[in-house]
Design a binder for these strands. Structure first.
Lengths: 340, 340
DNA sequence: TTGTACGCGTTATCAT
DNA sequence: ATGATAACGCGTACAA
């Protein structure tokens, strides 16, 4: 592989001349520049990234360490779409995505420390933030550029993406209320994640505002099995709710199957709303009513924002598509009191 | 951030002494080594990866450039599981995954050239290989370590993973044949990918061996919409097949919904086999019969193999779980001739 | 053990 | 202005 020195030798100039020519900086005459450029191209010159990173102390890479079981990628489409959005921006900007997944907290924090310590990344996407998150303490203390997903963390001004801001107007609850549901349940993701707590809060306060019964909340794990288990326990309640809001599409689909297997009709006996979508949500019978958002757009926005944060340039405007809205399909019907 | 020189100064020794101490090499006395180690730990020393990469010319990173539309990640669970498997190995070995996705051939090849040219990766996972693949020509000419997915490429001895080797014994066809199906169709992924061509070949030759009618092959794109379109066109055939083999689970699920919408019963009027699984396949009604394999295990094996190839060590043994097998569920029934 | 050259690209300094 | 020289960033490895 050709190095700067090789080009310089071939062109009969010094390394600096080649460097200036290649980087479009003044210091070389036009004809010499043209000659060098041509020579570099013909020799297939590519700068050694390690050498450049060493002097510039830039990694040209950003990190995404997902604090979950790796199987989440196929259970839950959020991450797949989010990554797709990130990629579509990064690949155009010459920045690389370093990708890790682990649900071991120790290993996770060690990853961050290593990546930052070795200066292998310029910044991070921080997802699934926990209360009193040790990652935040660390990244803050090293003032590493970060874009956070979910509700903002009080006292930290890191840029935030994907904060739906529903407050006490959660569209799933409002939609169910408009169909006469007064007694609902919510199968949430792990309570260790702040955005799940936030959603519970939104659902609960919306229900309160609409004078519904306080929603039953069952903690689950976003997996199909978790959806089955949570649904089974809800169906066994003495006062069975008339509707369930699921934290993601996969649990909703597994939950619907569970209800059907128990002899219930959806939406006749039980209404269902999923907070999230799958490519399949439309194709199933019944098609799943969902609070959907364009996760790819969220990823694009997050990437633009992180790049701007790293380069300390103007943050991009928040795109409109990255907002969640209810998509009514077939799984919500009029409330019918449990005949149990 | 502390550097080698900082430690050396604090310990009153030279950089080399510190380097030897940290890397467990001879050249420092035991007590001095202990002192240096302690000092390094207390100062939170982490080697600068760029500096190390520069001298060792190792990147400690491997690349995965997926030549597809980014949405494939959520359509098709293969990649999600495969990446999960890769990650579980890499994160334990201190190697990092550089991840890109693009369906633009030009950009794709440019990515490989840049990643190799800048020496940012030590090797690649090569997926969705095409006939006369320009990536292979390039990687071969630069003798970059590679692990390939799918059928081996004649004349190239790169290690291969995920070659099912069904030959003329494709389990989906054999399963359908055992239910009396003699006229089947196959909705394949893009014909530009070698493994899809291979599968068509397997299905066709298995059908021939079992004296079935030559399978109708419809090219599609692994997307739900593609599954709908392909199914619609198959159902419109004058001589409608009694069974369809889909290239992935998502197309199968979309296809089943399409058939049901057209008033057909699955498996009463139409049997379905998917070549691939989703976490949901089990939960749907009817549950989808599939040729399944443990894609996470495939990812683990691929990562082990790539690391061994890079380090020129003994390749790991092929794990048994990474083999595909038929999982019979609800979507295959006895062939019933079309009454159309 | 220590001193030092090396790997490679960038940039400040100096001479023209 | 243009070109050349040298120092720098940081860890490794060989000679002294």
């Amino acid at each position: 592989m050709a190095t700067l020195a090789d080009i310089a030798r071939a062109a009969g100039v010094t390394k600096s001349a080649v460097s200036y020519a290649l980087n479009g900086q003044p210091g070389v005459s036009a004809e010499r520049r043209a000659h060098i450029l041509e020579l570099a191209a013909s020799m297939g010159y590519q700068p050694n990234h390690a050498a450049r990173a060493l002097v510039k102390s830039r990694a040209d890479a950003v990190g995404l360490v997902i604090p979950r079981d790796p199987r989440i990628l196929s259970y839950d489409t959020f991450y797949a779409d989010f990554i797709a959005g990130i990629e579509s921006v990064l690949s155009a900007k010459g920045t690389i995505l370093l990708f890790e997944m682990t649900d071991d907290r120790r290993a996770e924090l060690a990853s961050y420390k290593q990546l930052v310590g070795e200066r292998r990344v310029d910044g991070f996407f921080l997802t699934d933030i926990r209360p009193d998150d040790e990652r935040i303490r660390f990244l803050r203390s090293t003032s590493t550029p970060v874009v956070m997903l979910g509700p903002p963390v009080p006292g930290w001004d890191a840029p935030v993406v994907n904060d739906d801001g529903f407050g006490d107007r959660h569209p799933a609850v409002e939609h169910l209320a408009s169909y006469g549901h007064r007694h609902i349940a919510h199968v949430s993701g792990p309570l260790s994640m702040l955005h799940n707590l936030k959603r519970i809060d939104q659902i609960t306060s919306t229900a309160r505002r609409l004078e519904m019964a306080p929603p039953q909340v069952i903690e689950s794990d976003f997996s199909p099995d978790g959806g089955v288990r949570a649904t089974t326990s809800i169906l066994a309640l003495s006062k069975r709710p008339t509707a369930i809001i699921y934290g993601n599409a996969v649990m909703a689909i597994a939950g619907i199957a569970t209800a059907q297997r128990a002899g219930l009709d959806v939406p006749g006996d039980l209404s269902v709303v999923a907070c999230d979508e799958t490519a399949l949500t439309t194709y199933l019978k019944p098609a799943v009513t969902a609070v959907a958002q364009d996760d790819v757009a969220v990823g694009r926005y997050a990437a633009d924002l992180l790049l701007a944060t790293i380069q300390q340039t103007e943050p991009p405007p928040r795109p409109a598509q990255a907002a969640a809205r209810l998509v009514a399909r077939d799984t919500v019907g009029p409330a019918r009191p449990s005949t149990r």
